[in-house]
Design a protein around this nucleic acid. Structure first.
Length: 357
DNA sequence: TCAATTTGACCAGG
DNA sequence: CCTGGTCAAATTGA
């Protein structure tokens, strides 16, 4: 029941992008005929317009795909993949979600001995942990608490860095389609829709956590994103910056620039350049497997894209989760509803056990 | 008692 | 065949 992914929200976004494009075209037409500006000046404006149009195409495709998906079987990527039995019931269902947008963030804690794992403001439920070859620390697997209740397939993987015990690598996969209220960082500046659990903007922040406090209870609604596009003329990439400011973590967080803004430039044609990173992870500094593009976008991917479109578009009606006075979590059984009791601590406990033992 | 986490097993991809 | 991702029964704890 992913309600109308890419529906009205997507339309709004599309209209917004088109309006931007119209404005950019107007500005292009009004550029002064000044020989001092040089051709690059005009090319830049043209590129910007091209970026915007590319995004519009992507959003439109996403909307189209979403409407198609709504008429087809609405089953999402791994919804209801109940282990062996479910897999047997649906041969061919892939447990892994290769096509989903994926991006990585780094979280730094001030003290390596701290046990907590990064909290990005969303409610996650741990569903697994695994020792990874070559890694000193196990990787924790989390999925959205509202996976069953709201069909949200966002997941994340948390792994402590080998080289720096203060650093956690968090890999997000899929975007939140749920309506959970997202907490944001207290003391981290103005509330922002920007979210580490959403695909990153063009700056690919690395997040620092100077005051690694336990979950704070500041709630904020996901506001309409200013979702503005920016074109990198140096990279010939289009990227979207979803109101880059502070990330909504439940501890004080600073954002520092990372060293890389885009996926490595790939020798692909102009159609790839047009890949509006707007709707895809703009690339992570060390991991990017989305493979999105205007061309070859698969339906599942589009579903995620559309989901994001819905999230970032004019504020969806924020449905308070059951008992939302406190944050609720729901287990995959879809019958459980209660406050998260041991947020993120357990995984870290395991890490500590490993440390100690 | 209920819900979240842990952990071993299963499965698919490479 | 190895590895990573997921499932689900068992365990934990409020």
């Amino acid at each position: 029941m992913q309600e109308g992914a890419g529906g009205e929200g997507g339309i709004h976004l599309l209209l917004s992008i088109l309006a931007d494009g119209e404005e950019q075209a107007r500005q292009l037409g009004e550029l002064p005929d000044d020989p001092r500006l040089g051709p690059e000046h005009y090319r830049g404006a043209a590129r910007q317009l091209q970026c915007t149009l590319g995004k519009a195409v992507c959003v439109a495709k996403a909307i189209e795909a979403a409407s198609r998906a709504a008429t087809d079987s609405p089953r999402s990527a791994d919804e209801g993949s109940g282990g062996t039995a479910a897999a047997e019931e649906r041969p061919g269902v892939c447990k892994r979600r290769k096509g989903l947008p994926r991006w990585t963030r780094k979280f730094r804690v001030p003290d390596a001995s701290l046990e907590a794992t990064p909290d990005d403001g969303f409610s996650w439920r741990k569903y697994g942990q695994k020792d990874i070859l070559g890694a000193k620390f196990p990787r924790g697997y989390y999925r959205c608490t509202y996976r069953a209740a709201q069909g949200c397939h966002a997941t994340k993987q948390v792994q402590r860095s080998d080289s720096d015990l203060c650093v956690f690598d968090v890999t997000y996969q899929g975007v939140h389609t749920c309506h959970q209220k997202q907490r944001h960082v207290a003391g981290a500046g103005a509330a922002s829709p920007h979210d580490a659990a959403q695909p990153p903007d063009s700056s690919m922040e690395e997040l620092l956590i100077p005051g690694f406090k336990d979950r704070l209870k500041v709630e904020t609604a996901i506001e309409a994103s200013s979702f503005r596009a920016s074109c990198s003329h140096d990279h010939d990439h289009a990227a979207i910056a979803a109101s880059p400011s502070s990330a909504p973590f439940s501890f004080h967080a600073d954002v520092v620039p990372a060293d890389c803004c885009f996926p490595p430039s790939s020798p692909v044609g102009s159609s790839y350049y047009a890949v509006p990173h707007c709707l895809v992870p703009a690339g992570s500094y060390d991991d990017y497997t989305g493979g999105y593009g205007v061309r070859g976008v698969e339906s599942d991917e589009l579903g995620e894209v559309v989901s994001r479109v819905r999230l970032i578009s004019p504020p969806p009606p924020l449905i308070s989760p059951p008992g939302s006075a406190t944050r609720c979590t729901t287990t995959p059984s879809s019958t459980r509803t209660s406050r998260s009791r041991r947020p993120a601590a357990a995984a870290a406990l395991t890490v500590r056990k490993k440390f100690q033992g």
